Amino acid sequence: MGKSNSKLKPEVVEELTRKTYFTEKEVQQWYKGFIKDCPSGQLDAAGFQKIYKQFFPFGDPTKFATFVFNVFDENKDGRIEFSEFIQALSVTSRGTLDEKLRWAFKLYDLDNDGYITRNEMLDIVDAIYQMVGNTVELPEEENTPEKRVDRIFAMMDKNADGKLTLQEFQEGSKADPSIVQALSLYDGLV
């Protein structure tokens, strides 16, 4: 993909415009910024974590950033290329609610087996709590990752089998306004 070129080839721009919710001009602008920050044309896990640390200076986002990195890194080569970056950004910032929920499901399904187990969710929720640090005051019933996961599973795990399917996750998330709101945070920002 033209590693350190400051412009993408027209056919690449066209393809990314088809695969995302961005215009050709927006794709070019994002590429310019991506190459400025990642001259090699790729972003590794350490660089990704560094970006998260800028956004969450009062907590430790390392663990959460690693989980997000793994979802962005579609081809699992340990690096995020621009096409992976822009497609994930498109879903998280401008995707439909169902697209965002499928993306979030992939984030929580750490072993990619098609289910979110209690332990997988606990890993992610714990990482989120570490990331936000003491900057967020949580209600008593959610002031630990374990309590939050218990509440989520009580609401979403309809067949009580200890794991969530994509359908259970989507339906449960849509029924909880706070989850829908959290997924909409990026709307309109890009």
Rank of each mutant, 00 (worst) to 15 (best):
S4T: 06
R148A: 09
T66M: 00
F153Q: 06
Y129R: 00
Q28C: 02
A46I: 12
N119K: 10
P39Q: 00
V13P: 01
F169C: 09
K3I: 15
Q49N: 03
P39L: 11
S173M: 00
D98W: 11
W30D: 05
I128C: 13
V13H: 12
Q28E: 09
P145G: 05
V91D: 06
S93G: 09
I51V: 12
N112I: 03
Y186C: 10
L185H: 08
R148D: 00
K106N: 10
Q28V: 14
A46K: 03
K3T: 15
S184T: 05
K158H: 06
D123C: 05
G59N: 03
N134F: 06
L122M: 14
N134K: 04
F67P: 09
F55I: 07
D150L: 08
P139S: 12
V132G: 09
L183Q: 13
S83L: 07
K9E: 04
N75G: 07
E81V: 05
N134T: 04
G188M: 01
F169N: 03
D98F: 07
G33C: 03
P10D: 01
Y129V: 01
V91I: 06
A65L: 00
E26P: 00
N112F: 00
D161A: 09
G188L: 06
V71L: 07
L189W: 13
Y21W: 11
G47I: 14
F85W: 00
Y31A: 15
T117W: 03
G133N: 02
D161C: 14
M131L: 07
L43G: 11
P145F: 08
V13R: 14
Q49G: 07
Q167Y: 10
Q181E: 08
M121I: 07
E26M: 15
I128K: 04
S83W: 15
G41V: 14
E120G: 08
G188N: 03
E120W: 02
G162T: 01
A175P: 01
N119I: 07
Q167V: 11
F85M: 12
S173V: 01
D44V: 03
V12A: 11
T135R: 07
P145T: 08
V149E: 05
K147N: 06
P10W: 14
E120F: 01
F69V: 12
G78T: 05
Y108W: 00
P10C: 14
E15D: 08
P139E: 13
N70C: 05
K9W: 10
E171G: 08
P139V: 11
W30E: 00
T23P: 13
L138T: 05
F105D: 01
E84I: 00
N70A: 02
I80W: 07
D77G: 09
T117N: 03
Q49L: 06
L185M: 02
Q170P: 07
Y108D: 15
Q29P: 14
T62D: 07
E26D: 12
T144N: 14
P145W: 12
K147L: 09
A104H: 13
